[in-house]
């Protein structure tokens, strides 16, 4: 028996994640199934709809597999937001992918119960890319920064910035028109939107835990998964969970530094936040964490336990990783 699956996602085919995670993962699954599983990739929302609809497309079978951000639909997957809180995640994707996947397995299956999650993961340390230098908290005052997910927006607001929410493809236009002064995204995204040509300053947050990351899931339609013959399901399973998460770290941990090198060679200024300044930022953003905890309490979820566990996992997997 042969099956063809449609994989749908929101980035163009030239993007790092498409080339360095989605494609290799698809090729591996196809090869290990002796080509009995065929996966057609539809990048750039080719199958229609908008990015916030991707998760439902997997749930409803509009696509068989989707790559999406839980943060695209704020409020819907509250638990996974724990990794998006300020100063929780590690600076390396290799650590975050394992931590997110482990916590997903322990505590979040319920929230994603209407799909089959192949893997859940998070990227590496996000970087502040801005027109002006950001060395201290005061430099953020009034800076209009595009933010990726809701919790990061709250954190930036707490630090004095003016967070502006918009989809990634809007960033170049908004920057050239002064609607924003910069954006916070990981290095990996920079070349695809030519961010390095529009801003000159890039601020990295030293050490771990880092200011923020965003989380992702690779979600599969449940009926499609359950309907696979046992041996093909085993192929998917062998490329799920931590195994897939480790593959997912590549675009960020391997391509990210290449981008950083390219940007440095171009003559842009790459700043690093001092340890002392980082601690100030962490203190300043604690109300964001507290607000999230209060919000979780309203939903009858023990946010405190989640947070503790997330931090423990990051520490555990982060042993010996700089």
């Amino acid at each position: 028996q042969e099956v063809t699956l449609r994989l749908h996602h929101f980035l163009p085919a030239i993007s790092n994640v498409h080339r360095h995670f989605i494609q290799p993962w698809v090729q591996k699954v196809q090869a290990e199934s002796q080509n009995r599983i065929r996966i057609q990739i539809f990048p750039a929302m080719q199958l229609g709809g908008a990015p916030p609809q991707l998760y439902d497309q997997a749930r409803d079978g509009v696509a068989d597999i989707v790559w999406t951000l839980p943060g695209n639909t704020p409020g819907r997957f509250p638990s996974i937001e724990v990794f998006e809180l300020p100063f929780v995640a590690h600076r390396r994707a290799a650590v975050n992918v394992r931590a997110v996947q482990a916590l997903y397995e322990r505590r979040m299956r319920g929230e994603f119960a209407d799909t089959h999650i192949i893997t859940a993961w998070g990227h590496d340390a996000g970087v502040i890319h801005a027109r002006r230098e950001v060395k201290r908290m005061e430099d953020l005052q009034g800076l209009k920064l595009r933010f990726p997910t809701r919790q990061t927006g709250e954190a930036l607001r707490a630090l004095g910035a003016a967070p502006v929410g918009m989809p990634v493809p809007q960033i170049p236009e908004a920057l050239s028109q002064g609607v924003i002064d910069g954006a916070v995204v990981p290095w990996e995204v920079v070349p695809s939107i030519r961010l390095h040509e529009m801003v000159k300053n890039h601020t990295e947050i030293a050490g771990s835990p880092t200011l923020y990351i965003a989380t992702f899931v690779l979600a599969m339609n449940k009926a499609k998964y359950d309907g696979l013959p046992a041996d093909l399901r085993a192929v998917i399973d062998a490329n799920s969970g931590e195994a897939a998460a480790r593959m997912a770290a590549k675009p960020w941990d391997e391509e990210g530094p290449k981008v950083e090198e390219m940007v440095r060679k171009r003559g842009n200024q790459i700043l690093e936040l001092s340890e002392e300044e980082r601690n100030r930022w962490q203190r300043q953003t604690t109300p964001v964490v507290e607000a999230w905890l209060a919000g979780m309490k309203e939903r009858n979820i023990d946010g405190g336990a989640l947070l503790e566990e997330a931090r423990a996992l990051v520490t555990q997997f982060g042993q010996g990783v700089s």
Partner: peptide, 8 residues
């Protein structure tokens, strides 16, 4: 049912 909200 899913409680989806806007981002900002």
């Amino acid at each position: 049912r899913s409680g989806t909200t806007t981002m900002v």
